[in-house]
């Protein structure tokens, strides 16, 4: 029954990658079901949650095997979701067997995430462009660029210090407001509003909200609710960070 173990491994890894990289939970479930169809597993039951996955596969002799996969880290990496989806499509179509799929999935899983020298300029430019879009001038563009760069530099430090994701948002909101307020000391031509809202834009839980809606529509109430809570809490934390800094700055009377 060695080939059965390989199938189980491949299926688990595929859904794990999807859950870890920001795919919807129903997509993780669908992937397992499709792959099992392609690999001639007679019966499969799967329950995916944002924080874990449970599945039971039935062997041809009628015995069944269950496995639980815990998903601890969640980030967004759409390329992984896409690659994983391509593998599951090929398996479902019978063009790939379990061994090949497992090998390919391991490659996807081990592929390096985006590195800091890439994230900093891209994050900074995205924050700056949002500021321009929301009606900022070129001076605001520059300040927002600095904000975006600092946020991208701060995020890995925060996650290394085992700061829970939610609290990270608080610090990020705090930093953005601090930089903006300090910059107003140097020039009176700076508009605070587009800078702060533009710099916060890339941090807003857009993907979480979209996924929450799509999960809820599909009837995955538990996942939808969990993701919705995550999105609301992230937004509230960002807002709290901005609020704290704004009122502190107001309190100093500058």
């Amino acid at each position: 029954m060695e080939s059965f173990d390989i199938t189980l491994d491949a299926v688990c890894l595929a859904s794990r990658i999807i859950l870890e990289s920001g795919g919807e939970t129903y997509r993780a479930e669908e992937t397992v079901e499709k792959m099992c169809q392609g690999l001639h597993i007679p019966h499969v039951e799967v329950l995916a949650l944002p924080t874990g996955l449970m599945l039971t596969l039935m062997k041809e002799d009628g015995a069944s095997v269950s496995r639980i996969v815990r998903v601890r880290s969640r980030s967004t990496d759409l390329k992984r979701v896409d690659d994983c989806n391509a593998v599951s499509r090929r398996v479902a179509a019978g063009q790939m067997d379990a061994g090949e799929a497992l090998e390919r999935l391991r490659e996807i899983h081990c592929a390096p995430a985006l590195r800091l020298p890439w994230m900093v300029p891209v994050g900074a430019l995205s924050a700056a462009s949002f500021t321009l879009m929301l009606g900022g001038g070129w001076l605001d563009f520059c300040v927002s660029f600095v904000c975006g760069a600092v946020v991208q530099l701060a995020l890995p430090v925060l996650s290394r210090r085992r700061m829970p994701g939610m609290l990270g948002g608080l610090v990020v909101g705090f930093l953005i407001t601090l930089i903006t307020m300090v910059s107003t000391l140097f020039s009176s031509a700076i508009n605070i509003e587009p800078i702060i809202s533009g710099a916060v834009m890339p941090m807003l839980p857009g993907l979480a909200t979209t996924n929450a809606i799509r999960d809820t529509i599909r009837g995955d109430l538990v996942s939808g609710g969990a993701r919705f809570t995550e999105a609301v809490l992230t937004a509230v934390m960002l807002a709290a960070g901005i609020c704290i800094m704004l009122s502190m700055w107001g309190g100093m009377g500058l």
Binding site: T76, L78, A113, V122, G123
Partner: peptide, 11 residues
């Protein structure tokens, strides 16, 4: 530009 940069951030 913002949309392109944001999609680069999400890989």
């Amino acid at each position: 530009a913002a949309s392109i940069c944001f999609s680069l951030m999400l890989n």
